[in-house]
């Protein structure tokens, strides 16, 4: 945990820099335009709507593959964020997008199952992931995504991941 007497600015800068480094170092996250809101350790992924995300131009609706990708990105970032939190807080790591070796190793997706509950509307989408179980080697993560109303999910997913092994 952060030291009691550490300045609020220093704490926020450290956490924001770490999250930014993690997110901005992945080209595909930038290509999709996904950003992350942070409240303490809680992350909310935000996918701003864009024409290139459309899968069905007649409705129109967001592509099912975009929905899957958005949920998978959310799961991977949450899992990594949770895994590095302690090291980050203790100052043992300080990831920098410009220095590849400083970046945390990412978990590998073993499988990912998406449940499409309603069609994705042409507006911004949000998602939050919950690490259901994280062991030394394997992790199970659940993700929920919504648009206008938090209670009306448009998709949810469960994925299994292989955690990065150090050394």
């Amino acid at each position: 945990m952060a030291r009691r007497n550490e300045s609020l600015d220093a704490i926020k800068t450290r956490r924001n820099n770490t999250l930014n480094a993690l997110v901005s170092s992945v080209p595909y996250i930038r290509w999709l335009g996904i950003g992350f809101d942070r409240r303490g350790d809680e992350l909310t992924a935000v996918l701003p709507f864009d024409e290139k995300l459309i899968g069905n131009p007649m409705l129109p609706a967001i592509h099912g593959g975009v929905t899957a990708a958005f949920l998978e990105v959310t799961a991977i970032v949450e899992l990594t964020w949770t895994a590095i939190w302690e090291d980050m807080e203790q100052g043992r790591i300080a990831p920098d997008a410009a220095v590849p070796e400083s970046l945390p190793r990412l978990p590998k997706t073993i499988d990912f199952t998406v449940d499409y509950l309603r069609s994705g509307l042409p507006r911004d989408a949000y998602a939050r992931a919950r690490v259901v179980r994280s062991g030394r080697r394997y992790a199970s993560v659940h993700v929920e995504a919504w648009q206008d109303q938090r209670q009306k999910l448009f998709a949810q997913a469960t994925g299994h991941f292989l955690m990065p092994q150090d050394g």
Binding site: V26, Y28, L103, L106
Partner: peptide, 15 residues
């Protein structure tokens, strides 16, 4: 999806 290896993101495979 992984800047260390240059491997394409799983989300692309999903799409």
């Amino acid at each position: 999806g992984d800047p260390r290896s240059g491997v394409i993101h799983g989300g692309v495979i999903s799409a």
